[in-house]
Every structure is written in structure tokens, then in C-alpha cells.
Amino acid sequence: MKYKNKLNTVLESGFQPSTTTKERVRMVLERKLTCHAPRRFQWALAVGSLLVLLGIGLYVRQPHPVELLGPSALHATNIYVAQNFGECGPRGLESQPDYIHFQ
């Protein structure tokens, strides 16, 4: 019984915050309430930044030259490569390991 009373006394005693603690918490609280940006604004800022980064990424990315060619130009390129770099035409060149087929 005595032991239980002692345990209860300890658990019920709690911590006594000093006056400086109280003042410090008040100062932190005041700073949070006056300077802290609203959460919605933070989210908007984060999403906006991501969109701007994505936009910059898309703008900076340069298309590969082959992407600019149409199907007929690609066909002509294949024939040109075959004629200049192989004797057997495009089909014969496909078996070569370093043959590049533009699509």
C-alpha cells in the first residue's frame, strides 16, 4: 500500500515549468502566430515551384535531330546511310552490328 502511494505520488507530481519556460514558450508562440506563413500558402508555393521547374525542364530540353524528320525523310536517310556505308543496301546493313535504323 505504501509503495503504491509512493508510485502514485511520483506519477501525479508532474514537472514544474519555470517562469522562463513559460516566457520562452510565449515568445515562440507569438513568433509562430505573427510570422508563420499560412499552410495553404506554403502548399501553393511548393506546387508553383514544381510547375516552374517542370516548365524550365521542358523548355531547356532540345529535341533530337531525328525527331524533327518526317517519315519520308527518315526513309531517305536510311537509304543514304545504306548507300554510303554499305554495299548491300539497307537490308544487308541490318545484319551489321553498328547499323543504325532511323525510325
Binding site: F15, T21, R24, V25, V28, L29, K32, L33, H36
Partner: peptide, 17 residues
């Protein structure tokens, strides 16, 4: 720690406010 408890107390009062 005491410091952490102070931070948490401030956060709780902020939400209460």
C-alpha cells in the same frame, strides 16, 4: 527533453489559438 517539450507546448497552443 525540456526543449522538445517547450516546442511541442508552443505547437499545441498555436493549434488551440
Amino acid at each position: 527533453t525540456d526543449t522538445e517539450a517547450e516546442d511541442l507546448t508552443a505547437c499545441i497552443f498555436e493549434k488551440l489559438y
